[in-house]
Amino acid sequence: MPDTVVLARVAFALAWFGVQAALISTAGDRPDAAFGFRMFSESSTIEAHLTRTVVHAGRTVELPVEDGTWTTREPTGRGHNCSWHDRVKERILATFDRTIPASYSAAAQVTRWQAALADVALHLEPDGETRALNLTLTVHRNGHEAVVTHASAVVTP
């Protein structure tokens, strides 16, 4: 068999494992360590609490949101239902006020929740009263003390 075949196979192997090595060695730079084969990297939990900032009678107040769903009143007086679940289908990114496992690391879930918050706020139909959505994430990483993270996303009027 000609040496070119051998060389081609060696080059293929080097290229494949070069890419794999690069993905694995840089996995720590990605919150979810994507492509890094880091199985069971953590035993962390996360609890999400959602509120919305509304303007009512000229005052700005923060109202709790239960199970990601809330009702607003349109200027016409008609009720309007809004739901986090309309945009976020992934179950673990749509479970509120309950401690759930933070799959693929706490950092991965915090990043995803924050991205989901921005996405929901961006796609929320203006209801005349919601000014912002606020997310409080309580994270226990590997059984350590809780770390609380706050994030807000302004609702485009």
Binding site: A27, G36, M39, S41, E42, S43, R141, N142, H144
Partner: peptide, 29 residues
């Protein structure tokens, strides 16, 4: 083998894995 090396290597470099915090918390929960 590379999958094992990546997974085992990451655990080895993680102090929480080395001291048993990760597994201990799983067993507890």
């Amino acid at each position: 083998c590379l999958v094992y090396l990546a997974s085992g290597g990451a655990k080895l470099l993680d102090p929480d894995w080395r001291d048993g915090s990760v597994l201990g918390d799983r067993f507890f929960r």
